[in-house]
């Protein structure tokens, strides 16, 4: 269970203090995937960085399993759009990096099982620059799952991939996720992706990011998503929200 109460994040720039997130309340139940969607610059990544322990300067309360965020105590899997892997480490070394940093014994059988599950077994001794974008992202996913995380944070993980690869990565992710049911926060700018991977969808407003609405998504993980009427319905609903808010934004 992850609970966030009254989270406000401000940071200083040369032009003064900017409020990135304002009064965010939300919770992620165990085994839940929450998709966060919002216009660019709405503080989606800031929210994720707070949960990852990268930003420590915030107001409000953020608890992971009842404890304040501390990446040394908790197990946090972070999957970024890019740069998440260390180019000087092989696929295997990258995949077990989390356990190594935590100073834990590496369960080789489990690590190899996850690598195999993600189709990386033959590439264990390669370096990231010898891999395609999709393969690299699979290594990042492997790293997170090998860590057996309390919380999985994904920051637009598939948006740099081509469409076909992206769809198969979404499926692969949901597939392995169903096996381990890790609480997940999934930041995306694609409405379609949010509908496909999120149990619940949280829509943020433009800067400063506030929660505009929450949608319980009945279509989570459904096959042939685009053929359903509901898909069209929810898609339009989110689209309208994102637009509506833009209108408010200009009026104000």
């Amino acid at each position: 269970m992850i609970s966030i109460k009254g989270l406000t994040v401000k940071y200083e720039t040369s032009g003064g203090i900017v409020t990135a997130l304002s009064d965010i309340d939300m919770s992620i139940a165990d085994g839940d995937i929450v998709a966060i969607i919002g216009p660019s610059g709405c503080g989606k990544s800031t929210l994720l960085h707070v949960l990852a322990g990268i930003i420590g300067d915030y107001e409000g309360q953020v608890l992971i399993k009842g404890q304040p965020v501390n990446p040394r105590e908790q197990r946090i899997g972070l999957i970024l759009q890019d740069y998440g892997l260390l180019p000087w480490k092989t696929v295997y070394e990258n995949a077990v990096l989390g356990l190594k940093i935590k100073g834990e014994v590496i369960d080789q059988v489990y690590a190899e099982y996850i690598l195999k599950r993600l189709g990386l077994a033959d590439m264990a001794s390669r370096y990231p620059n010898q891999l395609s974008g999709g393969q690299r992202q699979r290594v990042a996913i492997a790293r997170s799952f090998i860590l057996k995380p309390d919380l999985l944070l994904m920051d637009e993980p598939f948006s740099a991939l081509d469409e076909i690869t992206r769809e198969s990565m979404q499926d692969l992710f949901l597939d392995i996720w169903r096996q381990y049911k890790v609480s997940t926060l999934f930041v995306t700018h694609s409405i379609e992706e949010a509908i496909y991977v999120g149990h619940r969808i949280v829509v943020l407003t433009p800067s400063p990011g506030r929660i505009q609405d929450r949608i319980d998504n009945p279509l989570f993980g459904m096959d042939d998503l685009r053929l359903s009427d509901d898909f069209y319905h929810i898609n339009m609903q989110i689209r309208r929200m994102l637009k509506e808010d833009g209108a408010h934004f200009y009026e104000a």
Binding site: G53, P71, E73, L78, G84, G98, I101
Partner: peptide, 8 residues
Amino acid sequence: YSLISLGA
């Protein structure tokens, strides 16, 4: 980032 989130 990825290292910090691992508690490095």
